[in-house]
Design a protein around this nucleic acid. Structure first.
Lengths: 227, 227
DNA sequence: GTCGTCCTTGACGGAACCCTGACGGCCGCT
DNA sequence: AGCGGCCGTCAGGGTTCCGTCAAGGACGAC
């Protein structure tokens, strides 16, 4: 869940923001002054910060600098001032966006979504992409298989088959499902394809291809990959 | 130098932006319609895009979508409309910021700086700028390749291809991805380009171009750069 | 205009890959 | 024991894919 830190000293604005954000399933923290805000940011590590520049205890720009000293979290600035200078100062201090009050809630939320979106890591990121077994290693992102100190070359079909099996580690995958995922939706009965390519995978990856430990046959049903 | 792509059909706005940007040492490209813009973006790979939503040939939001299909370049939207709906639509389509006309040049430039700044990779981050192999050295920052005591001359396309491969060292890069990153999003099947340019890179960088050790072909899938 | 660089495009030989059929082994059933 | 179903193995042939070369065109520099 996305965590938002709201920093504003006007209770009604904080309330409006909190209600709207919570309704959209954000997790919200709120602070009414700069000192509390910096403390909360350090403690809670929000995914995005909404900051009103007019705070009782310190200049809003100082809050920006305080955050930027250690984090690149997106900062969305709110302010009643329309003055260009103030906008420039806040943006150059490290703010990501600047919205003048009064603001439309829809717009603010859209800008918040934009800020969060571009901060998130590139898609296809760090979800588990490396699978280890006793004998070999499969890197799904790099499309690489390592075994006994060297890379193993797989053909496109071999790789595709391996990928489907590994993504379903421990689960039985039916022959029909394998055929459709690798060869296309119009296939489903050509089990001889599977026999041939499973044999290739075993020959390239199993220590003893005749007695596979990782690529298990479930007679009449399908195949299963075990670590 | 930071490269900016300005997309607007009003000549006076384009002129004002170009003058101001050039004075601040930005490199500027300009387009006055969406089709040209998408083409230019693909060809020039700007670091930031300034986009007016009111274009003669297509909806501005379509331009945003066209760009977001293949790049995460920051997009700063200009518009005469103050309507909240339009802002929300543009931001959710993938825009990074939204400025209503008339706008202050100072503010626009500050927002542009903010957009460019946060797109920058983490300073001192873990991505290496210099990649060494046994036979040559690639300096991604300086855009230079050193081999056997001298610089190697690469054409723009050769360099671009090398860059994509090196940034994905060890990972397989599909032919489609290479074509789209180097030649633009409308390419994807012209694998003969890849064959020609991969041969050039090998001829210039491999010790034995006929038996490449660094630029590995994975038949049917793509290419891989290995140190 | 002329030259040189770079990109595109087509053609061809060779390599890699995929499909296919045949054969034998294992197992359960009759 | 005999049989049929299912699976593993192997090798050949057609097809796709890749590396290489060369020619033509676009573009900018001089």
């Amino acid at each position: 869940m996305t965590r938002v830190l709201v920093i504003d000293d006007e209770p009604q604005i904080v309330r409006a923001l909190v209600i709207n954000l919570k309704a959209r399933h954000y997790e919200v923290d709120a602070a009414h002054d700069g000192a509390t805000a910096l403390q909360l940011a350090a403690a809670r590590h929000p995914d995005v910060v909404v900051l009103d520049l007019g705070l009782p205890d310190m200049d809003g720009v100082e809050v920006i600098r305080g955050l930027r000293g250690w984090t690149r979290v997106p900062i969305l600035v709110l302010s009643a001032r329309h003055s260009s200078d103030e906008k420039v100062e806040a943006l150059d201090a490290g703010a990501d966006d600047y919205v003048t009050k009064p603001f439309g809630m829809d717009e603010l939320l859209a800008r918040l979504r934009a800020a969060v979106r571009r901060a998130e890591p590139v898609p296809g990121g760090e979800d588990e992409v490396v699978v280890d077994t006793a004998e070999f290693t499969v890197d799904l992102a790099a499309k690489k298989v390592h075994r006994g100190g060297r890379d193993v070359r797989l053909t496109p079909t071999e790789w595709h088959l391996l990928e489907v099996l590994v993504r379903n580690t421990g689960r039985l995958v039916s022959q029909k499902q394998l055929l459709q995922e690798v060869w296309g939706p119009s296939y489903g009965t050509e089990t001889n394809y599977l026999r041939v390519y499973m044999a290739q995978l075993r020959r390239k990856l199993e220590a003893d291809p005749a007695h596979p430990r990782h690529f298990i046959t479930e007679p009449g049903m399908g195949y299963r990959f075990e670590k």
